[in-house]
């Protein structure tokens, strides 16, 4: 399928390390949406890229998906991230007020590969990790692809609002594990059905490993390609430390361990050795 190899790397679209600033912050359900300036990052962004941010008092960086970029605003180009406060770093980030300065590196990682032709695409995202699927949906629609979007979450508080995506998607399905909104169930429960109904040629998935794995498996059963955005802890996020092992099978059939932040985070779903992850 799909070919946009090596974007964001090498000298074509080099990433930058800049001082960013929080220009807006908003609580949405269980998440905190931050709008940030980060000169040079929005301009280079492709759907599926992430940013690495510094957290006060911590050496390791925190990775965040880019949810949205605006080419211009009152603050110039901006990017949005969605933060779920869980540990020390995400709690610190979620508490940052407007005007706070944050060191940001990005855009990082391999983005989603886009199909050359106008094919049918199923996009499946769970929790905050559905964030990168929204800019992806826009790009796919620009290419004339039929986009079916599935947004899932354990409960309503952790469901990303799909309202804005309705412009880019032909259909939007909402799944919650507790049935608080939309259909009840998990991606694993519905994956085959979703792939069939969307008649997908390509399945894009972002979320916990179980979601990615079931989406990739359903794609394979239906003869579709899959692209999965894999999260593993990324101490630096920039490819420098080799601390983010992602076990894969290479194009040549040889088992390898690659860096999730540099050779991923988006990889072909049929290449991941899920049992070794």
């Amino acid at each position: 399928m799909a070919d946009e190899r090596e974007p964001g790397r090498g000298s074509v679209h080099p990433s930058v390390h800049v001082d960013g600033e929080v220009v807006a912050t908003k609580r949405v359900g269980g998440y905190r949406h931050l709008t940030l300036t980060a000169p040079g990052v929005p301009e280079r962004f492709r759907a599926g890229n992430f940013v690495a941010v510094s957290v006060e008092g911590h050496v390791a960086r925190r990775a965040l998906w880019v949810h949205r970029v605006r080419a211009s605003s009152a603050f110039g180009p901006t990017l949005d991230v969605v933060v779920e406060a869980r540990g020390s770093g995400t709690a610190w980030l979620a508490a940052q007020p407007v005007g706070a300065r944050i060191a940001i590196t990005g855009p990082l990682g391999r983005p989603f590969a886009l199909p050359k032709d106008a094919v049918s695409c199923l996009l499946v995202g769970e929790g905050y990790a559905a964030a990168p699927l929204f800019p992806l949906a826009e790009r796919l629609r620009e290419r004339g692809c039929a986009v079916s979007l599935v947004v899932s979450a354990p409960d309503e508080a952790r469901l990303l609002s799909a309202l804005e995506a309705r412009r880019s998607a032909r259909s939007v399905t909402v799944l919650t594990a507790d049935g608080s909104v939309g259909q009840r169930g998990t991606v694993a429960d519905h994956a085959d059905d979703l792939v069939r109904r969307s008649d997908a040629d390509v399945v894009y998935a972002a979320g916990p490993h179980a979601v990615l794995r079931s989406a990739a498996a359903a794609a394979e059963r239906a003869g579709a390609w899959s692209q999965v955005a894999v999260e593993v802890p990324t101490p630096c996020g920039t490819g420098l430390c080799h601390g983010c092992p992602l076990p894969v099978v290479g194009e040549d059939g040889v088992e390898r361990v690659v860096r999730a932040c540099a050779e991923g985070p988006v990889v072909r779903g049929d290449r991941v050795r899920w049992d070794d992850l």
């Binding site: 050496v59 390791a60 101490p235 092992p245």
Partner: peptide
């Protein structure tokens, strides 16, 4: 290389 986690954060370093 070894299995993950390969690098973890501790106060003052890794």
């Amino acid at each position: 290389g070894g299995p993950g986690p390969r690098v973890v954060e501790v106060p003052g370093g890794l």
